[in-house]
Design a protein around this nucleic acid. Structure first.
Lengths: 105, 105
DNA sequence: GACTACATGTAGAGGTTCTACATATCAAGT
DNA sequence: ACTTGATATGTAGAACCTCTACATGTAGTC
């Protein structure tokens, strides 16, 4: 599946990934790729702006790594982010139910 | 669920509704509302532009009713529309699989 | 006569995701 | 030393979807 099939579920996917532990952007991209069995390959131009948006919204908090090595911005789920994840999961379940009801009617 | 949870599935929902038989815009809105058990209540400002878009794309064909009574534009699924519906269903299944894989990992 | 349901539509705003580009570090091979 | 590929982050501009709010008019009912 190319990236343009996630339609509004990107935030939930990112929050769910961070719920398993903090991670930096590139790691989130590779994690989603692996977790999805190579079906999700999100472009950086999609993920990085989403991370900034989620941070601005208070759902995740980012910190730059210190010391040598590649600079990374590591993100962690906040309390508000956990709530946002719950809402995202709930919305996803609703969508699944509605789609099921209409498609299998 | 309010309308802003359908995220890119609107076309598939409309095409699936028309796959059960031709219908005009307002009827599609009420059909989706009933089929979903009142969970979907799409605003006209969302559905009518979507119908025009789908017609422009060749997925559905519309004709104005003749004679007295309220003017209605009745839409029917085209051959291309049936293909588009197939693709929409396939995309939806992919999304469900990817979401399942990531969320239940 | 007023109100509700039916019926279609436009305008403008807001948001998400895309493609393409830009930059830089590190490891491995040659 | 040089090149290549993987790692890592980010911006710019375009395209697209859905929303809210508004606008218009018909048909039926009380």
């Amino acid at each position: 599946m190319d990236a343009d099939g996630i339609h509004g579920q990107l935030d939930t996917l990112i929050l769910a990934t961070l719920n398993r532990g903090e991670a930096h952007g590139y790691a989130i991209i590779t994690a989603l790729k692996e977790l999805s069995g190579d079906r999700l390959d999100l472009p950086s131009g999609t993920v990085y702006p989403a991370l900034r948006r989620l941070e601005r919204a208070g759902s995740i908090s980012g910190t730059w790594t210190e010391g040598p090595g590649r600079r990374r911005r590591v993100y962690a789920l906040t309390g508000d982010g956990a709530k946002a994840l719950e809402k995202g999961l709930s919305d996803w379940r609703s969508l699944r139910e509605v789609m099921g009801a209409v498609l299998e009617a």
